[in-house]
């Protein structure tokens, strides 16, 4: 399957292991990535807060670039990109006059956005387009006995109507479904659908870190081996800022946080090193040990 691939900013910035892991798992799932290297930041909600038209124009340009490829759809690997782009798409698709106003701006580059681009996070693509049965068949190292806590990121699950959650698309349950399909054990804990706190890290640092620390602590209490998230911005607050979050909530956390393609890659048989697991601030020792114990068990 060929997709117009939007990696976002942070996967090429402070979470380079995410970009690398996606590149490593794509061929194993027969996904051909047509990277949108001319596109710009989605605005992460901040540009829309500043000026809606600016955010809508930048994202219309990204959608138009995706529509110029022969990809079946546009795919992203960031919950925040998904949410911020869906918000802009909602306005662009709702109103023809507005859409043409925006198109007039990007027309100088020979671009035109056609209403109704399909833009899906990798998580949605796995469940809705590839299918969990097909994913299951490709598993080489089932995540047996690995206790994984899902962490979605707000932008990929709310608001439910805009994000397309309905009876046929229970997108707020896909991470749990995927962890099970990969052979892992889903950990039920309070924070899975809550906010990591990242958006207010510079405005209300204590509240932001308290959010991250509390969810990580809940996962520790639920005896999780690791968390998995489709959002690199959540990863920044949950992993990069984890030492500061631990200080704010006053407890040791040491909870590894994996990017979605990393967990997927482990199950598809890739090695922790190939997936950049050594590049996290909180070293995912429990996960690396687990992967080695699985290899040892297979050899015995």
């Amino acid at each position: 399957m060929k997709v117009a691939y939007w990696p976002g900013c942070v996967s090429r910035g402070f979470t380079p292991e995410l970009h690398g892991a996606m590149a490593a798992v794509a061929p194993l799932l027969d996904i051909e990535l047509l990277e949108l290297d001319r596109a710009s930041c989605c605005g992460a909600g901040v540009i829309a807060e500043h000026n809606q038209e600016l955010a809508d124009t930048l994202n219309a340009r990204t959608f138009a670039l995706a529509q110029q490829t022969d990809g079946a759809l546009m795919m992203n690997i960031c919950s925040t990109c998904q949410g911020a782009q869906s918000e802009c798409q909602e306005r662009l698709d709702a109103n023809a006059v507005y859409r043409e106003h925006i198109n007039a701006t990007i027309s100088s580059e020979g671009l035109h956005y056609e209403q109704g681009v399909t833009n899906k996070n990798l998580l949605w693509l796995l469940v809705e387009d590839i299918g969990l049965d097909a994913v299951r068949q490709k598993v080489k190292r089932p995540l047996t006995n690995l206790r994984v806590g899902p962490f979605y990121g707000c932008y990929i699950i709310r608001p439910a109507a805009r994000i397309g959650i309905d009876a046929d698309h229970p997108r707020h349950t896909y991470l749990e479904q995927l962890i099970e399909a990969l052979g892992g054990t889903v950990i039920d804990y309070a924070g899975s659908h809550k906010c990591c706190g990242f958006p207010i890290i510079t405005m209300n640092k204590t509240a932001s870190l308290k959010q991250a620390g509390r969810h990580l602590g809940d996962a520790v209490d639920a005896d999780a081996d690791c968390l998995v998230t489709p959002c690199p911005l959540c990863h920044l607050n949950l992993d990069l800022q984890q030492p500061l979050a631990a200080a704010v909530v006053g407890r040791e956390l040491a909870m590894p946080v994996l990017h979605l393609p990393q967990l997927l890659g482990l199950a598809l048989g890739l090695e922790p090193k190939e997936l950049g697991l050594g590049r996290h601030i909180v070293k995912p020792r429990s996960v690396i040990d687990w992967s080695q114990s699985v290899v040892a068990a297979a050899a015995a």
Partner: peptide, 21 residues
Amino acid sequence: NGYRHEHAFVKNIRRNGLLHE
């Protein structure tokens, strides 16, 4: 930092296209 964060973000993207954290 509400004002500064918004303006820093917008300036950052105008300059870099992609966010420079």
